[in-house]
Nucleic acid binder design. Structure first.
Length: 150
DNA sequence: GCCAACGTTGGC
DNA sequence: GCCAACGTTGGC
């Protein structure tokens, strides 16, 4: 079982939205490195939900991968802002996963706290200038993040 | 294959 | 709203 961190702007889709929906398809990722991480996810993996572009940016909850290797449906939808004209159902470019709500943390773990707790090598989200929206989290680091809650 | 121009991300 | 970092595009 692997751990991941996935970013979303709460004004677009928040942990509260996921708590309400229970499941969602994590669509709209259009970065190849992030997509490659999405492709390597397996059912049962867990992912931290990170709120970006908010004050403060923070890890706000936990989710579980419930379906792996789905074609992102928005790539085929001309009305979607994520539409990709070079992608066809026969040769889709963008894959993603379905995630299941696990929990919203009682208190968010802010980027400041993450910086105090981890080096950029341990946790990529504390790297200055980091823009990757999907990234792996080592199991030992994941355990320490969960320990910060208690 | 290089690289300048351009667009996006995301913390502040 | 600013702007640094960084990814993508497209002309050559």
């Amino acid at each position: 079982m692997n751990y991941w961190l996935m970013k979303s702007e709460p004004s677009v889709y928040s942990i509260a939205d996921l708590a309400r929906d229970k499941h969602t398809i994590w669509d709209g990722v259009r970065n190849y490195q992030a997509r490659n991480f999405l492709r390597s996810m397996a059912v049962g993996d867990q992912a931290f939900f990170y709120h970006s572009n908010t004050k403060p940016p923070a890890i706000v909850g936990l989710m579980q991968i419930s379906e792996a290797n789905l074609d992102d449906p928005t790539q085929f939808d001309p009305k979607s802002k994520y539409y990709d004209a070079k992608s066809t159902p026969d040769h889709p470019r963008w894959q993603t996963v379905k995630v299941k709500f696990v929990q919203e943390f009682p208190t968010p773990i802010s980027l400041d706290v993450l910086r105090q707790s981890f080096t950029p090598e341990q946790l990529w989200v504390v790297r200055p200038g980091n823009r990757l929206s999907v990234m792996p989290v080592a199991e030992a680091v994941a355990r320490q993040i969960l320990n910060l809650l208690s």
